[in-house]
Design a binder for these strands. Structure first.
Lengths: 328, 328
DNA sequence: AGCGGTTTGGAAAGCGCTTTCCGTCCTGTG
DNA sequence: CACAGGACGGAAAGCGCTTTCCAAACCGCT
């Protein structure tokens, strides 16, 4: 392995000059710079980031924490964050919590130990988040780490937050305009903030329009959660339209309905949230609220790198498709 | 930040003893060990991986290189690899090539500079892979790095390779048994080895059975590739059954057929490869060859960590579903 | 010519660990 | 009882960089 010392020797200059040339930290005589660059080139020198990190006290590593990489939502966010990191010459390490809050805390701790330059937390916050998470994040920030959240804000931290309430409300409005009279909501886990906001926004708009309160069924935030929860809705047999708080759940719901011989949208309309692109070829195509997922990731990274606890709100756009069909 | 020196001082022992206690590198008196551990506990010591890596010359970082994290195939493989890495206490950094061979080379180079413990290359190899890739991998291995490939072997390197030929052949056999008379293959990019193997395996089995040679249409390896390529098949109007060399392409094909009013499987059967779980709720459900995706990732990691250029073959299982319907 | 002030190169002190090397002490043996 | 040999603690030498801190050189000025 070629070290900087080799380069310096080869160029006939000091270690300091070599380092300064390669970084532009301080002015270096043009002649010497030329020599250093030539030497580096000839020897095929490549800096050792580990040593750089140790010496300078800061790494070029970004920590990205997601719940589940197989969930296309997180995959898309991660993809965006990685693209942005790439532009900054930063490296991304990904950790998955598998929806275990304790693991999330452990990941943040590990990233702090690693001296990660910044941490992006993309799992959405929950009412029953352990207090250790906030404590651990605090510790990390005190040590100079930067943090940004995706999908849900936390007091005092930068975040890029989709307009969950507004998006869900707009969706409810659009569906009401379509003439749907009775709604149900597959609301996900009771404590999950994103799920709560979407449920609340949707229900709020219905109330504002004087429509009957929706049937709210809780369950998992994933495909199987939607698949299970839809059972209650089907059993009640009241609703004409179901809103699942995310697309993946909506897919599970549609599958559950199909198993019961309930047609979508003829017998029951279904809408989701997120507009996952992998799911766009589903039939019937899902009515949903489009979120610029990759952009969420990108902006979170920029936010983490920048300063100030800014919260950026990202709007969603209602997209009406076949799953909510024409009015009955 | 608490350093090991702090711990040693607090415990009244030397740096060496502290280090040895925490690592079990050498026998240390029980009494001293107790003191060290206590001191570490009291001070809330956490090792600095950067320093460890610099001093020992090896990091706890695994580099995972994929083409596209949003593609559920890669997401699943990545997930498996990360789970396995987690068990080993290793950290995973993910890089996406965006299907650009040059970026792949650059990523490997960056990971070598980072002194990554191992690199897992999950993008499948292509005939037009730049020779620099092999060179760069070689350099990395010479520097003590370990490599494992997923999905496609490369001479001299450990790999976990799905039985693409055998799987595709088995699928062809199953479809032939169903009575399909005329086939087409959405074969992906001409140079991509995985695509070639699957195409070859499928066509080979047809030939072995004395069936007419399939119409082979090349195109992209993703959803849009399948969507475009199916146009030619539809135009020819010959085939009764289309084999797309991966599920994502098959989904694109199904979408393309739907746009043309061609029913699946009534008018044309469609089969894929991989058995992507995110797509399981698609209608009609896709006939495919199931691959244990997460397991591929896990085994690749173990392979990279172990030694010897072993190549592990992973079998696929034909899964007949509605997209190939009953025989016509 | 003499002097403060500014550049700019180099020596060297770390960054926080691991690991070699050395010395001491303890053991068992002839 | 002397001595070879094994255990085990500590000093210290790095790992490959960055970044002070110094010193030399040079500037413009009185």
């Amino acid at each position: 392995m070629v070290t900087l010392a080799d380069v310096a020797r080869h160029a006939g200059v000091s270690l300091a000059t070599a380092s300064r040339t390669l970084h532009g930290t301080r002015k270096v005589n043009e002649e010497l710079r030329r020599k250093v660059r030539l030497a580096a080139e000839e020897l095929g020198y490549e800096a050792n980031p580990t040593a750089q990190s140790l010496a300078s006290g800061e790494s070029n590593i970004i920590g990205l924490v997601v719940h589940d990489l197989v969930d296309p939502y997180f995959a898309a966010v991660a993809d965006g964050a990685m693209a942005a990191a790439d532009r900054h010459g930063l490296i991304v390490t990904v950790g998955t919590t598998r929806r275990d809050p304790a693991r999330e805390v452990a990941l943040v701790a590990a990233l702090r130990a690693q001296r990660a330059r910044a941490i992006i937390l993309a799992g959405s916050r929950s009412l029953d988040d352990p207090p250790q998470l906030a404590a651990e994040l605090d510790r990390y920030r005190k040590a100079g780490g930067r943090v940004a959240l995706v999908g849900q804000e936390l007091p005092g931290l930068p975040a890029v937050a989709p307009a969950n309430r507004a998006g869900a409300a707009a969706l409810a409005g659009a569906l009401a305009e379509l003439g749907e009279p009775r709604f149900a909501i597959l609301a996900g886990p009771p404590g999950l903030l994103t799920a709560r906001d979407r449920t609340g926004g949707f229900a709020g708009e219905l109330a504002a329009r004087g429509l009957p309160a929706p049937l709210v069924v809780h369950g998992g935030f994933d495909r199987d959660g939607g698949h299970e929860a839809i059972a209650s809705v089907a059993a009640a047999g009241e609703a004409t339209c179901v809103f699942a708080v995310n697309d993946v759940m909506a897919v599970g719901a549609v599958a559950g309905l199909r198993e019961r011989g309930i047609r979508v949208p003829e017998d029951l309309s279904v809408a989701g949230f997120d507009d996952i692109s992998t799911l766009r070829d589903l039939v019937p195509a899902l009515t949903t609220v489009r979120l610029p997922l990759a952009e969420l990731g990108e902006r979170a990274l920029e936010l983490a790198l920048g300063d100030g606890p800014r919260v950026e709100e990202v709007a969603g756009a209602v997209v009406l498709r076949a799953s909510t069909g024409p009015v009955r």
